[in-house]
Design a binder for these strands. Sequence first.
DNA 1: GCTGGAATCGACACAGTGTCGAGTTTTTCG
DNA 2: CGAAAAACTCGACACTGTGTCGATTCCAGC
Lengths: 231, 231
Amino acid sequence: MSPTPGRRRAPSKGDRRERAILDTARTLLAHKPLADITIDELAAGAEISRSSFYFYFDSKLSVVVTLLRALTGELNADAGPWLDGTEPDEPGLRRAVATLAAIWRTHGRLLTGVLAAAPTCAPIGQWRAGLREAHIARLAARIERGRAAGLAPAGPDPHVLAGMIDDLQTATFAAATDPDGLVDDLVTVQLRMLYGQLPPRHSSGSSARGTSGDHAMASSTRRPNPNSSPE
Amino acid sequence: MSPTPGRRRAPSKGDRRERAILDTARTLLAHKPLADITIDELAAGAEISRSSFYFYFDSKLSVVVTLLRALTGELNADAGPWLDGTEPDEPGLRRAVATLAAIWRTHGRLLTGVLAAAPTCAPIGQWRAGLREAHIARLAARIERGRAAGLAPAGPDPHVLAGMIDDLQTATFAAATDPDGLVDDLVTVQLRMLYGQLPPRHSSGSSARGTSGDHAMASSTRRPNPNSSPE
DNA sequence: GCTGGAATCGACACAGTGTCGAGTTTTTCG
DNA sequence: CGAAAAACTCGACACTGTGTCGATTCCAGC
């Protein structure tokens, strides 16, 4: 094999195997959640035995984290001019959201699969939290600038509002079948959250407080396993 | 034991055991996610052997589903007048959100624990989906009424918008440490999403398209397990 | 052709789940 | 009361998935 000048080195057998594992993981994640994927499958996909898998990765998680590292750049890149601007520049926002939507279109299954695992497993949760915090910080700063410039109405604490927007975007795309179709709506809603003025109040406000407290737990006669069919 | 007249029957040993399992589950869920709870623990909490557990419930899931059934009523009850009204009645919305916040304050750990498991396990996912759909249906109807009456500006499809609001609420409370503190913000944001008018546009729109495409996947020299420390 | 690291694998130990059948306890009612 | 029925309990087992270890094979460079 001529070591093509310019390339450091021909990819070794191990390199190919590692990629094969990663590719298999990507493929499988498109079909089922992380929790349902076994190391056997990952290994089989790369045509090695289960124990050989451990030569390449510590665990399923390490595989996913590696996959995620590759996505982080893309995910951050979308932010661009919108987050660093100040004006309520709709086209800029639309561009940002559209880019995000494109990522979700391509990597949607991976992202939802991984996000599903986030609450349960620390490293993934941290990855998500990192992205979220980064987004919130920039967006909150943007909100502050906008308000200071009199471009946006007062409202919730910028960090809280930014968090809501981030959550909204993630939840919306995660639930979507067609991310691109949601871009316009997401833009509209986001602009309203940031800049929406409420029409004058009709007043007539009373701040009552009502805490409903009724429980009702039926206790039927028990047969072995009265509680039925989960999964 | 005098069978207190008025009561059907003294709770049998089995009844007490079943409750003990449920209580244990509630307690444990406050401390760790569903996935980290074993049947051993549940059984131990009720002072029975692991295999006896299966006399009462099919699986961990059945336990949680039972827990959830008890919550469903409360969760639906909050909706009340706000969802069935038409006017942008802020106090009504505040009352609804405050009630929801109260539920999250009391059952927060249970809810986040359970919600964390939702993507992975069908029955929980269905429970969540059911609540969500019910909320969306009523809220979407409300939005349509409001728009028809000229009270709310046009915007995203009512079902989409309603879904966003539901997601927003869930995500916000799930991430919150102090649900009650978020009521005002949630009310403000929700009203803006529904009724917010955008100030007149400055125009100057160009709809360029930018798809950034750079990857960078470092492939270092491999040692056994180059991928480190997950969990 | 030999040597050392890269890569591979089978066997093992462990943790959790769910089932089965054989026991014990409690309730029912003749 | 006392025997049959039901409610309940448990140990032993089979199974799935994870991660570790040590022995073995492969292969590049000297």
